[in-house]
Design a protein around this nucleic acid. Sequence first.
RNA 1: GGUUCAGUAGCUCAGUCGGCAGAGCACACGCCUGAAAAGCGUGGGGUCCGGGGAUCGACGCCCCGCUGAACCA
Length: 294
Amino acid sequence: MTIAIVGSTASGKSSLAMAAAHARPGTEIVAVDSMQVYRGMDIGTAKPTRQDQADVTHHGLDLADPIEDFTVVRFVEHYDQARAGAKGPLLLVAGTGLYLRAMLDRFDPPGEWTDLRATFESESDLAALYAQLVQLDPRAAAKIDSGNRRRIARALEVCVGSGQPFSSFGPGMDAYPPIETAQIGLRWNRDTLRTRIDQRVDDMMASGLLREVASIGRVKMSRNAQQALGYKELLDHLDGQATLDEAVETIKLRTRQFAVKQERWFRRDPRIEWVDLTEDSSEALSVVLQALDA
RNA sequence: GGUUCAGUAGCUCAGUCGGCAGAGCACACGCCUGAAAAGCGUGGGGUCCGGGGAUCGACGCCCCGCUGAACCA
């Protein structure tokens, strides 16, 4: 039995999952989150507390040091292990849409050819790069914007490295086959979500986020870890590039934009059952419990 | 009280000689299978502070007023 709760940052999915796990003892939680995988990045990623982790078995947390670049493939491997060893139902708490889809729809990403990728990414003539992709894999090219260097380089990396078209590795993201796992989506209206985000960022600052960021430091953070909201802006502040107030405002703004981006990602998936929240989450809890009991 | 400067998209501002109203950010929407809290694209938005005048034609020139800033008293 596996259920997924999806939603944007600050939607309340973690606390809903805790409530559900308490109501159905034995349930284990899987945090599907590209940043909570980093050890020591606790406050800024709103990682479940030690107490929560003591009360309910959690997976998906603290899988890598901040100096490492984590990837989807590593997360799926971890998930498969967790699923095999789990003693009770799994409750997935997902903010990272790509990770969740890779897990549930069994994406099988082609391998890595990092030196090829580096070559393509440093190619100065982007138009020529795109033309090459159109030649090798017109189907992939049709789905990638001609200005998107990163995705073009990755597709070419796979075409050249594997000898097969990038588009031959799966149906793509717009295929939503039926799956066992029920997905429940949490949704707030934008104004309410904004105040929740502002409050959450203020709370993080009050809890010592700046100290956490300073104690890790930029040199001990990988490219990917440095992208984490809150960390990125406070690292810039520590480098003297912004005042603390400016940094906090930027965190709030970008977190809002991130939340909308998450919503747009999940919105596409027709299999998600949405629960519109006001301030009362009891309806969401009963929906989750119902799914767990089914 | 006087002088000067400013007032254009939600915000910060461009706008050449008077000739179809612009940018960045924000916002909305979409795409993306080994960086996804990343990357890429699309487009909706205007009482050009208000009023009057000269002109074929004004965001632009002239006059009056309003608001803000700086300086002088």
